[in-house]
Design a protein around this nucleic acid. Structure first.
Lengths: 156, 156
DNA sequence: ATTTTGAATGCAAATTTATACATTAATTAT
DNA sequence: ATAATTAATGTATAAATTTGCATTCAAAAT
């Protein structure tokens, strides 16, 4: 009957059911014997990062944030900005990021001011990194390791 | 001033700005000289799959549902999104599209998941396509032929 | 060119969600 | 244990979003 168990219940209800409004959710919560108001649910949903999206057939549905969406919710430049993949091709390094983060990640690379990196071009979720001439792939990867925490890089 | 360009504008505004309400968005749309009402934006946002989430610091923010993919799936014009030109340079392929469509076209390329293509970076009307090493120009062009209807490609 | 049809839009009302404020419950310090 | 402080919640209301309906606009058909 406390906040914590209510949050857990909400998470479960949203995960397992198609819920289209906070009033629907309220009814389901009350159906389990727990009791609160719509206002509390509004606050709980924010706390849980649960958002209202579309159910694919004209209606609405509350959704748990996936990792990807959660990342997108954070402001660019946050520590959570991560690299989701890297591929070398034609002497260039293609870096993948969560959607919308390419620019934020590229800025961090640019700001590091490493000689080995001639420059970057960022799209929405892809960065093209251009190394200087005669710099090895390994040297570039070492630069990146120095710029980002190891855990924020997921090599492909 | 038509629906399609408004949708493209909204997609772009949401991608590039932190927008917390439909009224905010309405002001930005009007700021570009385009004109509509909040009710229309509500319908457009559904069409584009754009949802309101959290900005990580107490506020709200509209978000593309799955980053770049949202544009590809939802922009009505994307099915017909065309390639207006292609140029090879330095082993890279520069692809031209109508203004504002680079992202939508690039998504389709990305999603095709062809091995031959290491990645793309999209600007507004230009895409830089990076082929993997040891892949011929012809092989890349064949990939594109498979992804797009022949008539949507205009070689330069 | 005119009519027909369906899509797109604005308006206003209805619905849904968020919040200010007051109150209660819980936690911490004394 | 009691007071002080902070967190959680309900109530009422405000803010924001969605939708029914009428109208306009655009494309297709005649």
């Amino acid at each position: 009957m406390n906040r914590i168990s209510r949050l857990a219940l909400i998470e479960k209800l949203v995960r397992e059911n198609v819920i289209g409004s906070q009033d629907d959710l309220l009814r389901m919560v009350e159906g389990t014997g727990m009791k609160c108001t719509q206002a509390t649910l509004s606050r709980d949903l924010r706390q849980l990062g649960i958002t209202r999206g579309f159910d694919g057939s004209g209606g609405y549905r509350y959704l748990l944030s996936s990792g990807r969406e959660a990342a997108a919710e954070m402001l660019p430049g946050s520590a959570a900005a991560s690299i989701t993949g890297m591929t070398w091709a034609r002497g260039l390094l293609l870096i993948n990021t969560p959607p919308g983060f390419a620019s934020a990640v590229a800025i961090r690379i640019d700001r590091a001011g490493r000689y080995e990196i001639a420059g970057t071009v960022a799209g929405d979720d892809t960065i093209l990194l251009i190394p200087r001439d005669n710099i090895s792939n390994e040297a570039v990867e070492e630069c990146l390791s120095g710029i980002f925490e190891p855990e924020t890089i997921t090599k492909m």
